[in-house]
Design a binder for these strands. Structure first.
Length: 489
RNA sequence: GGUCGGAUGGCCGAGUGGCUAGGCAAGGCUCUGCAAAAGCUUUUACAGCGGUUCGAAUCCGCUUCCGACCUCCA
C-alpha cells in the first residue's frame, strides 16, 4: 500500500509492467550544498527503492541533476541561480555544477544512499526538451513571446484538469492575482516558461528554433522521465513543496505533449523542521550535513555520525514532518546502536532442545510485523518498533539463556536473515568502525592492559586514575565479562 | 486573505474504532572492587468542547494553537 497524492488515499501498489518498476525522483539543483532537509528526501527515496528491490521488483530509479538555471518567474525577470552563483564565485557555471555535484554524491555516499540507475542531467537533454516544447507548441498549449516560450495554463485547464494534484481551486488561483508589477510578456498569471530566450550575457545557452535559449525548470523532468521511463510510469517522488507548482506543471506538460497521464503514483516526503519551522535555504535555518557530522552547528553539542542521522530519519514516517534537535539525535544514536548490537548478538544465538510456544509466537509476530510496517506506505518507524521488540528477546537469549533460543531452528534462521535484511539491505544502515586509527588503538590496547594488571593486583587507585583520565579527554572505557573496550569521541 | 495539513506521556515519534507501538530520558533491579557501559523491568498519553457509536487517539462538527503552499526551495 502506498499513499498517492493524486488520489489522497492509500492504494495497492500495482506496477504497470511487473516485475519492472519505473521511479523518478526530483534531484538536486547543484548550485549549493544540499542541506539536511534535502537529504531526508533522498534517504526516503532510497528507502523506497531498497524495499521494492528487496520485494523482488526490478526498479529503474532515475534521479536527475538540475544543472541549468531555474527561472525566477515572479516578476517575469529571468535569472538563474547557477549563473548567479557562478558570478559570485567568479567561475564558469559548469564549475559550479561540477563542484556541487561532486559534493552531493559524496554526501549521498556517506548517508549510504544507493546511486540511481540513471542520473540524467538537464544540460545533457536539451534536445529532448526542445523537441517536447515544439510538440506542445504544435498542440496549441504554448505560445512564443519575445522573452520565452510559455505554457498556456488557461487553455490547458479548459481541456484537462490542471489542479488535480494540488487540490487547489483553479478559479481562486487565477483570481488571487496579487498582481506582480512586472512587465512580463506572459498572458496568464499561472503560465510558466518552457524555454527562455537567452540574453546576450547569459553564458548557458543552446540554439533552438527560437534563437538561443535555456530551459525552464519544469520541462527537464518531463523530458527525461519520458525518455527513460516512458510516457506513463509508476512512481514519481519529490518534496511536498513541489506539489502545487513543479509537479502540477510537470503533469500539464506531459499531458499537453503526450496526451496521457504521466505518473501512476505520486509519493511526497514531508519537510524537515527546526524548532517547528521548515528547514530551507531561504529561511537561513538550514543544517549542512557536514555541520552535523562534525558537530560544528551552534545548536548541537556534539557531532552525530551519518548512520545516526539516517536512523533518525527512518524513525519518522516519510509523510510526517520531522523535527531535528539535539535530543532527537541523541536518542537516535542510542537506538541505532541497540539494533546493530542485537543484530550482531543474533549471529551467535543457537537453538535449544526445547521449543517455547510463547517465544515462538513472539518471534513469528515480529517476522510478520516488520513486513506489515513496510507494506503500510513504507512505514519504517513501525518496522523499527518490531525490530526493537526482537532486540529485547535477543538480549534475553544472550544474557539469561546461555545464547540459546527456545524456538524452531527454521524460525531462528528466518529471524537472523530478516533482521539483517531490514537493517542492512532495506534501511541501509552499516557498521561504523570508528576506531580505525591504528596508532591510537595500539596505545589504547596498552593502556587497557596496564589497567587490567592493576585491577588484578587490586590497585584500584591506578585503575581508576586511568579510567578517569581517559574519561576527561573523551574516551570511555567499557568493562564487560569478555574484557574492556573503549569508545572515543 | 485563500487552500491544504498538523496538535499524542519529560523529549522524539508510530498508530488502519475495541487488544497498554517503539526509542530516549527517569525510577527499580542484574552485572561490577566502586563506577561507567550493557541488559532486564516500571511509568496507560492522545489540544479543548460537543456529536455519531455498545465502544473514539482514530469518524463528524466547532474552537484554540502551529505549520506548509499560494514567490526559488526536497
Amino acid at each position: 500500500m502506498v499513499y498517492n497524492t493524486l488520489s489522497r488515499e492509500k492504494e495497492h501498489f500495482i506496477p504497470l509492467h511487473a516485475p519492472f518498476v519505473g521511479m523518478y525522483a526530483c534531484g538536486p539543483t547543484v548550485y549549493s550544498e544540499p542541506h539536511l532537509g534535502n537529504c531526508r528526501s533522498f534517504v526516503m527515496y532510497d528507502l523506497m527503492v531498497r524495499y521494492l528491490t528487496h520485494l523482488g521488483f526490478k526498479v529503474r530509479y532515475l534521479r536527475n541533476i538540475t544543472d541549468a538555471g531555474h527561472v525566477e518567474s515572479t516578476s517575469g525577470e529571468t535569472g538563474d541561480r547557477i549563473g548567479k552563483q557562478a558570478r559570485l564565485e567568479q567561475v564558469e557555471p559548469m564549475e559550479i555544477v561540477q563542484k556541487y555535484t561532486v559534493k552531493f554524491h559524496w554526501i549521498m555516499d556517506l548517508l549510504n544512499c544507493l546511486p540511481p540507475s540513471i542520473e540524467p542531467t538537464a544540460t545533457g537533454h536539451i534536445v529532448e526538451q526542445i523537441e517536447m516544447t515544439k510538440t506542445i507548441l504544435a498542440n496549441g498549449y504554448a505560445y512564443e513571446t519575445d522573452e520565452a516560450i510559455y505554457f498556456d495554463v488557461e487553455k490547458f485547464s479548459k481541456d484537462y484538469p490542471y489542479t488535480q494534484l494540488s487540490g487547489r481551486n483553479l478559479e481562486e488561483l487565477l483570481n488571487n492575482t496579487r498582481e506582480l508589477g512586472g512587465q512580463s510578456s506572459k498572458k496568464g498569471r499561472l503560465d510558466f516558461a518552457l524555454m527562455i530566450k537567452a540574453k546576450p550575457e547569459h553564458i548557458m545557452r543552446w540554439p533552438s528554433p527560437w534563437g538561443d535559449v535555456y530551459p525552464g525548470w519544469h520541462i527537464e523532468c518531463s523530458a527525461m522521465s519520458t525518455k527513460y521511463l516512458g510516457k506513463t510510469f509508476d512512481i514519481h517522488c519529490g518534496g511536498m513543496d513541489l506539489i502545487p507548482t513543479h509537479h502540477t506543471n510537470e503533469i500539464a506538460q506531459s499531458i499537453a505533449c503526450n496526451h496521457t497521464t504521466p505518473v501512476k503514483y505520486w509519493l511526497h516526503p514531508n519537510m524537515l523542521t527546526v524548532n517547528g519551522q521548515k528547514m530551507s535555504k531561504s529561511l537561513g535555518n538550514a543544517f549542512l550535513p557536514v555541520e552535523l557530522f562534525e558537530g560544528t552547528h551552534p545548536l548541537l553539542d556534539k557531532g552525530y555520525s551519518p548512520m545516526t542521522v539516517r536512523f533518525s530519519m527512518l524513525q519518522a514516517h516519510y509523510r510526517s514532518t520531522l523535527d531535528f534537535s539535539n535530543d532527537a539525535l541523541k536518542a537516535a544514536e542510542k537506538g541505532y546502536k541497540r539494533l546493530m548490537s542485537a543484530m550482531n548478538l543474533l549471529k551467535g544465538i543457537t537453538v535449544s532442545d526445547t521449543v517455547n510456544a510463547d517465544e515462538e509466537a513472539a518471534v513469528n509476530k515480529i517476522l510478520l510485523g516488520v513486513y506489515e510496517g513496510m507494506n503500510n506506505d513504507f512505514n519504517a518507524a513501525q518496522a523499527i518498533a518490531e525490530l526493537n521488540e526482537a532486540a529485547t528477546i535477543i538480549n534475553t537469549w544472550n544474557d539469561k539463556q546461555n545464547k540459546k533460543a527456545s524456538i524452531q531452528a527454521f524460525t531462528l534462521s528466518r529471524l537472523q536473515q530478516t533482521y539483517r535484511a531490514f537493517l542492512i539491505d532495506i534501511f541501509g544502515l552499516q557498521e561504523e568502525t570508528e576506531n580505525d586509527n591504528s596508532k591510537l588503538s595500539g596505545v589504547m590496547d596498552l593502556v587497557i592492559d596496564i589497567r587490567k594488571d592493576a585491577r588484578g593486583k587490586k590497585d584500584f587507585a591506578t585503575s581508576d586514575k586511568i579510567r578517569d583520565a581517559l574519561q576527561s579527554v573523551g574516551i570511555q572505557l567499557k568493562d564487560s565479562k569478555d574484557g574492556t573496550t573503549w569508545e572515543g569521541n
